[in-house]
Computed example of a mutant assay.
Amino acid sequence: MTGPGDSGPIGADPTEAAENGPGGARSASDADLSDRHADPETPADVADLADRIVAEVEDVIVGKREAVEHVLVTVLARGHLLVEDVPGVGKTTLAKSVARSIDGSFKRVQFTPDLLPSDVTGVNVFNRRTDEFDFQPGPVFANVVLGDEINRAPPKTQSALLEAMEENQVTTDGTTRSLPDPFCVIATQNDVEPGQTYELPVAEVDRFTKKIRLGYPDTDEEAAILGRLTGDHPVDAVEPVATVADVRRARRIVGEIEASEPIREYVARLAVYTRQNARLGASPRGSLALVRAAQARAALDGREYVIPDDVQTEAPTVLAHRIRTESGGVDGAEVVADALDRVRVE
């Protein structure tokens, strides 16, 4: 279980704790990285930051540049990522590599049927020496939290993440505690053993900014993976190329990227189309996630404004998982594809 020292003092300002460290002074790694790279101040700086992270992670994750970019877009858009795929394709390695590349804390939770909500969020433990209850933080108190096979746990345990994902905080026994900033959940979903899993509640799925699949590597990529794993695991060699403070600044820059009124109206029309052509369409939360993801995509290109291409690039992974259709033969991805074909850019 995560200890209080892993993410700064509980109840302290998470931004200050991450900026300054436990002793109030910046860590040596932060200082070294600042010497090597200027703090992000413009979308072009954010693009440079993203390129460094992608390059570092690609030393470990072979042939998955698009997936790494999806993770970065999610982080910059202040969101969370759902990865649905078969076991053994590198989901854990991807999450851990991204966390290491930004010098952030990383925790992994293996979801199982007997996992309790307190195993995720933390629990108050009675201290006999002080005759008081001490809060022992759960693994959710980290910059990057990997929820492995989240659909193996019952809905009650899954719901432990709802407040954390929506409000970046955890409430236990009436006390609310802030989570580290940045905070990102990367959850994996087992889709090959439906008889041994629980369906994710719609409210929880809607809180994931994006949903992606990694897929199997091709022959050359798999051969390269095998070559890299014959010795030590390459994730251990991932070096920080940014700091969590860099990520916070990059997020602020992304939030200031212009999404003009025509862009916002285009996003709204896409969302309305999904509601008119499915039993359950994209929610307003989904529309907001799409605008934020489009802003992050613009930043990856070094632009100060969103263009329709940004929206169209992000819509499939941002909207499709939120849609429920009447027909088993039509899924959310098809509804989104139809929306992109039929809804005009004005």
Results as ranks from 00 to 15, higher is better:
313 T>C: 00
36 R>F: 10
38 A>N: 13
134 D>A: 12
154 P>Y: 00
22 P>H: 03
105 S>Y: 10
23 G>E: 14
25 A>N: 13
268 A>L: 15
274 T>C: 01
248 R>K: 11
115 L>K: 04
192 V>C: 01
303 R>E: 04
21 G>V: 02
90 G>P: 05
311 V>W: 02
154 P>F: 07
244 V>L: 12
316 P>E: 09
146 L>Y: 12
230 T>L: 08
248 R>M: 13
342 R>F: 06
43 P>S: 11
306 V>P: 00
76 L>I: 01
314 E>R: 00
319 L>Q: 09
346 E>P: 07
314 E>F: 03
169 Q>P: 04
343 V>P: 12
18 A>R: 03
15 T>F: 14
309 D>I: 10
140 V>F: 03
99 A>Y: 07
323 I>M: 03
254 V>R: 02
135 F>T: 02
344 R>M: 08
58 E>T: 01
162 L>D: 05
15 T>D: 13
142 A>M: 11
303 R>T: 08
317 T>Q: 15
183 F>A: 06
191 D>H: 11
48 D>K: 07
120 V>Y: 04
144 V>T: 06
229 L>H: 15
40 P>F: 09
16 E>F: 12
34 S>L: 11
60 V>Y: 13
121 T>L: 07
7 S>G: 15
325 T>L: 02
94 L>F: 12
96 K>T: 11
140 V>D: 00
30 D>F: 10
331 D>I: 01
301 D>Q: 15
116 L>R: 07
327 S>Q: 06
26 R>Q: 15
8 G>N: 07
2 T>H: 08
15 T>Y: 14
40 P>S: 14
18 A>F: 01
68 V>W: 12
295 Q>S: 11
26 R>Y: 01
61 I>F: 08
35 D>I: 02
247 V>T: 07
303 R>F: 03
216 Y>L: 15
63 G>Y: 15
85 D>G: 09
289 A>S: 15
109 V>G: 06
8 G>D: 05
78 R>N: 13
343 V>F: 01
157 T>S: 04
51 D>E: 15
322 R>M: 07
298 A>G: 05
244 V>R: 04
